[in-house]
């Protein structure tokens, strides 16, 4: 955990429950005023196997809030930073120059250019979590496929999922220690 970080908030998506309805993506847009033509969350589909033995997996995806976040390291102004209270990766729009170094360094292509000029991405709805509410994507999910919580709290739903189920991270070879998990 980076020095000075109180919590280690993360997200998990249950692959057995996610149906790819996109409600999370729309709820996120609505909650965070995401501009038209941009998405902080999206649905990812992966089909693999040998015909006819194909397996399809669907999941909702966003910024991975990596512990060793390359976007934070590459940002020349400190606009991309790790929030000390939550351990999440956030962007200060007032410090961002729109140089796109963070977009270049993100292995997950989770960022986009906001029409105002700054680089934007998922905040994990920390403004809601601070008040004891659920993240927009989590609260709208009709199958309860999304868990958001403190990875260091053994009683949190996300910790129980990670303890009891097989958990994967996207592109582990990138070495960024993502705090976004896919659980089976």
């Amino acid at each position: 955990m980076p020095a000075g970080v109180n919590k280690r908030l993360g997200m998990a998506v249950n692959l057995n429950r996610c149906v790819g309805c996109s409600a999370c993506a729309i709820a996120c847009k609505s909650e965070n005023n995401v501009p038209p033509g941009r998405l902080r969350r999206w649905i990812h589909e992966k089909t693999a196997g040998r015909f006819p033995d194909l397996k399809m997996q669907i999941w909702s995806e966003s910024c991975m809030h990596c512990e060793d976040a390359p976007c934070v390291h590459s940002c020349p102004t400190g606009a991309s930073h790790v929030d000390a209270a939550t351990g999440t990766v956030q962007v200060h729009p007032e410090l961002c120059t729109g140089c796109k170094a963070c977009m270049a360094s993100c292995p997950y292509d989770a960022r986009y250019v906001h029409p105002d000029g700054y680089i934007d991405k998922c905040t994990l709805c920390v403004h809601k979590l601070e008040h004891g509410e659920e993240a927009a994507c989590q609260s709208i999910c009709p199958t309860s496929a999304i868990a958001v919580g403190d990875l260091d709290d053994p009683t949190s739903e996300i910790s129980r999922w990670l303890r009891d189920r097989n958990a994967l991270v996207r592109k582990p070879e990138a070495g960024t220690k993502p705090k976004f998990f896919l659980v089976e």
Partner: peptide
């Protein structure tokens, strides 16, 4: 001959400069 493993990934993300192909620096 054994058929090759088929892998296809698609996403609903359509962010400018990112999708369909990455092009953040011109």
């Amino acid at each position: 001959m054994q058929q090759e493993i088929f892998v296809e990934e698609v996403s609903t993300r359509q962010n400018p400069h990112v999708d369909p192909g990455l092009h953040f620096w011109g």
